[in-house]
Amino acid sequence: MTKALSDFSVLTFDCYGTLIDWESGIWDALQPVIQANNRDDITRGVALEAFAELESSQQSETPAMRYPELLTRVHVRFAERFELTSSDALDRAFGVSVPHWPAFPDSADALRALARHYRLVVLSNVDREGFAASNRKLGVQFDAVYTAEDVGSYKPTPANFEYMLKRLSREHGIGREDILHTAQSLFHDHVPASRAGLARAWIDRQGLSEGGGWGATARVADRPEVDFLYSSLAAMADAVSAQR
């Protein structure tokens, strides 16, 4: 690492898993079909691991599909995987569950603190409507928002980072060297951000660096090195404040 936190002027964020507690949201949204089938054997860990596999597979197969439709298909495949009886209504309800996913308790306060020192940008794997609903829980106005719907593909596809970097350069005069990409997911964010030449802060909410589980995130064989590591966004905001 050759830079300090204070050397960057822009933070680009993943949203789901970093700012929004998508694992709790996903688990809650799966409850209707699990409970309707009396499947107490499907634990949170088992369900989230299956979701990680099914979601990443669906995103690869249908990269231009809007996220609500993609989640609907994931729910269908989840039910098939565990031999659950589902319905169109249950599948669709899961598909539109993103607005109900909660923010992490520290997200809004930490973002407001960080906004005093950085421009804030989001690069998210959802659609514009879904992110707008989540944004209302986050307490800040982002300087730019780019979604999978805008790009026509899902992270970790390199096109998503290329799209963001081009837009930031052309429309905001922001260069690669100004950016610290801040995210939880190694699979969705740190691997492709590393290939894009971005400095990275890992918000390790799962404690993965200390032996925690992968949760709803697909596994990576080789963990990329990161420039900064924090257990929460609040911890990163505190580190920034200490340097100012």
Results as ranks from 00 to 15, higher is better:
A4S: 14
L5H: 15
S6L: 10
S6Q: 11
D7F: 01
S9C: 07
L11C: 05
F13L: 04
D14W: 08
T18M: 05
L19C: 15
E23S: 02
E23P: 04
S24H: 13
I26G: 02
D28Y: 03
L30I: 07
P32C: 03
V33C: 06
Q35G: 06
N37E: 01
N38R: 15
N38K: 15
R39F: 01
I42T: 06
R44L: 02
A47E: 04
A47Q: 05
L48V: 02
E53C: 00
L54I: 14
S57H: 12
Q58A: 15
T62Y: 12
P63W: 00
A64P: 01
Y67C: 03
Y67G: 03
P68W: 09
L70N: 14
L71Q: 12
T72A: 10
T72N: 12
V74K: 08
V76H: 04
F78P: 01
R81F: 01
R81L: 14
R81Y: 05
S86C: 06
D88Y: 01
L90Q: 14
D91R: 15
A93Y: 00
G95T: 05
V98L: 13
P99W: 09
P99G: 11
P99L: 09
A103K: 14
A103I: 09
F104V: 04
S107E: 03
A108I: 07
L111M: 07
L111C: 09
H117P: 06
L120R: 14
V122M: 05
L123H: 11
V126E: 05
D127I: 02
D127A: 08
R128V: 11
E129D: 12
S134E: 04
G139H: 09
V140M: 11
Q141I: 00
Y146P: 01
Y146G: 02
E149L: 06
D150N: 13
V151H: 04
G152W: 11
Y154T: 00
T157G: 02
N160H: 13
K166M: 08
R167C: 03
E171V: 02
G173L: 02
R176A: 03
R176E: 05
D178H: 13
H181I: 10
T182Y: 09
A183I: 07
H188M: 08
D189E: 04
H190N: 09
S194R: 15
S194N: 11
R195N: 05
G197V: 05
A199I: 03
D204V: 07
D204Q: 10
R205D: 12
G212P: 10
G215A: 07
T217L: 08
A218F: 04
A218T: 09
A218I: 03
V220S: 01
P224T: 07
E225K: 15
E225A: 15
V226R: 05
L229A: 11
S232M: 08
S232K: 09
L233G: 06
M236V: 05
A239R: 11
A242N: 08
Q243A: 10
R244W: 02
